[in-house]
């Protein structure tokens, strides 16, 4: 009895872990390099996530706001995307600006910053990158990115 209950519990844990692994994440990617966009989409979709693409900062904000308007009907607490992956150097609006505006709307939105700029100089300038933003320094392996997003 005792044995079987602990086995059940183990089984339950395994299932929940598996579920988490296969969990579909809703991801907004903002990136201006066409090749990089294709690659991100390919690897993210392969891992079972849903990807929304924006080609510049402004488009990214627009897509975020649209999604926010939709999801707010469902739940006030739910963020429109699970993760926002931001490139810093984009046309129209930089990644830093976009991150700030998103955090103004949803302070607990998870944002990952993917930038080729020297990360140290980004971090040193105070107020440039909000603290809660996670950082991925380019160039990175696509698997590293997946690991970070699913972490």
């Amino acid at each position: 009895m005792h044995c079987s209950s602990s086995l059940d519990r183990l089984n339950l844990m395994y299932e929940s872990a598996n579920e988490k692994l296969k969990m579909t994440l809703n991801i907004l990617v903002a990136e201006d390099n066409a090749f990089t966009i294709t690659q991100y989409t390919k690897i993210l979709e392969k891992n079972g996530h849903s990807v929304t693409v924006a080609r510049d900062g402004q488009e990214c904000l627009e897509k975020y706001t649209q999604e926010l308007a939709k999801t707010e009907f469902e739940s006030l607490d739910k963020n429109p995307f699970d993760v926002v992956l931001l490139d810093n150097n984009m046309p129209k609006k930089s990644g830093v600006e976009v991150a700030k505006e998103i955090l103004d709307k949803r302070p607990n939105q998870r944002i990952i910053f993917a930038s080729a700029y020297d990360i140290n100089s980004l971090l040193k300038a105070p107020g440039t990158v909000p603290e809660s933003v996670e950082i991925l320094e380019k160039p990175f392996s696509l698997n590293t990115m997946i690991g970070k997003i699913q972490a």
């Binding site: 990089t36 390919k42 150097n89 700029y117 380019k138 160039p139 990175f140 392996s141 696509l142």
Partner: peptide, 26 residues
């Protein structure tokens, strides 16, 4: 700063192509 960023930015997709080709995704 901008020039070095510009020189660095194509490196990411180059790595990406290599990785995707290796895994057979493209």
């Amino acid at each position: 700063s901008i020039a070095s960023h510009e020189l660095k930015s194509p490196i990411q997709p180059i790595f990406g192509f290599a990785e995707l080709a290796q895994s057979g995704d493209i």
